[in-house]
Design a protein around this nucleic acid. Structure first.
Length: 731
RNA sequence: GGACGCUUAGUUUAGUGGUAGAACGUCGCAUUCACAUUGCGAAGAUCGCAGGUUCGAUCCCUGCAGCGUCCACCA
């Protein structure tokens, strides 16, 4: 293969050949790099793309900047590792496969858990590697030989160990949490699995002591433990913090005198209340509404469950017990009318959440979940500081630097107000909890003190409780983020951890700063005793040209491969970096075209330089400044080199690229190349001018290589006497 | 509802306490000599609005308006 300068640069032809060359050279793997002994490593953890993901411009942003750093530091002689992998993305993947099944007229229940999971693995085998293959087209120099999937056996073992570790440290506990429940499918549903149906219901205005409350669900009133108002609402200010004895409907369906009321209601002020809705005050039923559950959590309101798993009123509902919630509603409304507590009702259109599978109305009910303690407050037995405090500390002490700086605020406020992390999920695809229950000692809900389960990696041969049953594993799986939080070390082999942990950097979009970055930080501290990386780079969101969000469903998403195909990977990378200068990016195809023009310029300038210097015997003659033009270009080169390095090291990639663009195009091509034409005609200046041309071009290619690696490598191969690859050339 | 951000030439944007740089586009000129995916040159910005701080603000503060993103959610 050699470059054909008689034709315009054709990225399509060369890019895949060059990429093969790099892969074959093994230089993506830090263990193969010709680095000096004792030289430092530079490690980047790739944001794990979901196996269900399709490539979008955001991925190009996520990955182009680390690639620049990796290539730069590789050329600077560091041992560079860029660790790639994919995430099993629990709910998202399960959802995709279930949709596939639906087309065949089946549900996951038809297959059963085991066969369903097999089916997901099949799906993963077929599509799971696709996104990484697409990423390679952008020219990323990640070490693919180390690629891991968050459900690989070795990775899974670490995930299970982590769970057991937390359990032993008394940082995991079981508790109730209100979840979306389908009474027909008998399963909890994630947000993804909800569908919304527009419906007409009634909004009932119920008298509640000094309040009138609007609700669509009067049947949950027996589970009410609070009334919430907006903190800045002057109407209700006087009641906030008071516990009220309220004249209300009794479970016998009659009027309850205030004195007889057992469960009094606390008035709380909460930001979640919409002052404009209804009367501006709402009843709080933590057991049967997700928002109310959050409010209850914030104000320590008790949880009173009045509807059961089958969607029927339970014994707490007195004479209404056993009735379906819907029927109970009618009856209760009647009774409220009779006792004079119903002020009015009006029709109300709202979105009703239904099960995506069977269409049944979902019923929020409390269910047992596993929680990971985030904070030392609340009697953590781990002594010292909790996970959140430690993650906060390293950022406050600047051991971990979040850039741009203002995202530090987001991070700090999230961790400062954090609640314990619900790590269990009621789906099938994921890391199943290493929790084993005794079949003979079943309890609805068991806290530690009256255990009927053990937490161990392998199923115990003999049940420690009844000594005779075949223990049953908890059907729950872990939240996907629980496993991806371990990525900086679970992604590495035990051997690698000694060499490549801690790493240096992650680069991702802002929406996963808390979901992922924060959790990697505290997991790293907990399990490795060290921060996983010093730098968190948050890049802007890629928007459409008119400033709208890119989304697949709106048809505004953009596949960067379209540009790779049309203009080349270099031009695409150029466009991404060129535009990623400030905040969010309004993606403009014009930038890709500018990138292609630039690569074309480089191509032609290189052709000129290589032709002009063909007769130069010594491949690397020392250039000297003999003319004004010589002095100028050599000086400017030094300045550009210095600035480019400075900008790359401080993550100002766009600035670096603009500087390089300016230098190459305007200083080198427009000025020096033109001047060189005359100088070469002068025999006295000829040799030296040739030497300068070659030298400037070579140095330019090096500086440009991290940004536009393909074309620079292609041209470098044409250099007289170049034996090695540009990718490992000294910067 | 919460958090964060944006508002600078036709468009996309950079930037600084002393009235602004660029890219694309537009217009004019040039060009057999690396490149028309070119070169040279020109026009084009009261730096969202209203106050304030300051000798002086596009840059700092306050308010307003518009736009957007993320998170939470619609009782």
């Amino acid at each position: 293969m050699s470059a054909d300068f008689s034709k315009p640069y054709d990225p399509k032809q060369t890019e895949s050949e060059i990429y093969d060359l790099w892969e074959k050279s093994g230089c993506f793997n830090p263990d193969n790099l010709p680095v000096k002994k004792g030289s430092k490593s530079f490690v980047v953890y790739m944001p794990l793309p979901n196996v269900t993901g399709t490539l979008h411009v955001g991925h190009a942003l996520d990955n182009t900047t680390p690639d620049i750093l990796i290539r730069y530091y590789r050329m600077k002689g560091k041992r560079t590792l860029w660790l790639p992998g994919t995430d099993h993305a629990g709910i998202a993947t399960q959802y995709v496969v279930e949709k596939q099944l639906k087309k065949e007229g089946k549900t996951r229940f038809d297959l059963g858990r085991e066969r369903f999971i097999e089916r997901v693995w099949e799906w993963k085998k077929e599509y799971g590697g696709k996104i990484l293959e697409q990423l390679k087209k952008l020219g990323l120099s990640a070490d693919w030989s180390r690629t891991r999937f968050t459900m690989d056996n070795v990775y899974a073992a670490d995930v299970i160990d982590a769970f057991i570790h937390y359990y032993k440290k008394n940082m995991l506990y079981r508790g109730l949490r209100t979840v979306n429940w389908c009474p027909r499918c008998q399963t909890s549903l994630s947000d993804l699995e909800l569908e919304y149906k527009e419906g007409q219901t009634m909004l009932y205005y119920i008298k509640y002591g000094p309040f009138t409350l609007a609700t669509t669900r009067p049947e949950t009133k027996f589970g009410d433990t609070g009334i919430a108002v907006h903190p800045r609402d002057p109407k209700y200010k006087q009641y906030v913090g008071k516990e009220l004895e309220i004249e209300s409907l009794s479970v016998e369906g009659s009027l309850d005198a205030p004195a007889k009321k057992k469960n009094n209601i606390t008035v709380v002020a909460d930001e979640a209340v919409d002052r404009e809705f209804g009367t501006g005050a709402v009843k709080v039923t933590p057991a049967h509404d997700l928002t109310d559950f959050e409010i209850g959590n914030r104000h320590n309101l008790p949880l009173v469950q009045v509807i059961d798993e089958r969607g029927r009123m339970n014994e707490k509902a007195g004479k209404y017990a056993g009735m379906k919630a819907e029927d109970a509603r009618k009856k209760i409304v009647e009774d409220l009318k009779t006792v004079g507590l119903l002020e009015k009702d009006e029709p109300y259109a709202h979105n009703l959440a239904v099960c995506y599978r069977c269409g049944h109305a979902i019923e929020p009910i409390p269910s047992t979940q596993w929680f990971l303690k985030m904070s030392s407050g609340g009697g953590s037995a781990s002594g010292g500081e909790g996970l959140a405090e430690r993650a906060l500390d390293v950022v406050k002490k600047k051991k971990v630097i979040i850039q741009p700086k203002n995202f530090e605020k987001t991070y700090v406020s999230w961790l400062s107000n954090i609640r314990d992390w619900t790590v269990s999920r009621q789906i099938w695809w994921g890391h199943q909890l290493p929790v084993w229950f005794c079949k003979n000692k079943k309890e609805e809900f068991s806290k530690r003190e009256k255990e009927n389960f053990v937490v161990v990696a392998e199923k115990p041969k003999v049940c420690p409780f009844c000594k005779e049953c075949d223990m049953e594993q908890s059907p729950d799986v872990l939240d996907t983020w629980f496993s991806s939080a371990l990525w900086p070390f679970a992604g590495l082999s035990k051997e690698d951890r000694k060499k490549y942990y801690p790493g240096n950097l992650v680069s991702n979009a802002r929406e996963i700063l808390n979901l992922w970055d924060a959790r990697m930080i505290f997991s790293g501290l907990e399990f490795m005793g060290k921060i996983p990386f010093q730098n968190v780079l948050i890049h802007g969101t890629v928007l459409t040209k008119d400033g709208k969000r890119m989304s697949k469903s709106l048809g505004t998403g953009i596949d960067p491969l379209k540009y790779v195909d049309e203009y080349g990977a270099d031009a695409t990378r150029f466009a991404v970096i060129w535009q990623a200068s400030g905040q969010d990016i309004r993606w403009d195809e014009a930038a890709v075209i500018a990138g292609r023009k630039f690569t074309n310029k480089i191509w032609n300038a290189s052709r000129f330089v290589l032709e002009q210097t063909k007769d130069l015997k010594s491949p690397n003659p020392k250039p000297v400044a003999k003319t004004k033009a010589d002095t100028k270009i050599l000086k400017t080169l030094e300045k550009t080199k210095k600035n480019t390095g400075k900008y790359i090291e401080s993550f100002q990639f766009s600035r670096a690229l603009h500087e390089l663009y300016d230098f190459f195009w305007h200083e080198f091509c427009d000025r020096y190349l033109e001047a060189s034409k005359k100088q070469i005609e002068n025999e006295k200046l000829k040799r030296n001018t040739q030497a300068i041309l070659l030298y400037i071009l070579k140095e330019s290619l090096k500086m440009l290589h991290p940004f536009i690696p393909f074309i620079t490598e292609t041209i470098y191969r044409e250099f007289p006497g170049s034996s090695s690859l540009l990718i490992i050339e000294k910067w």
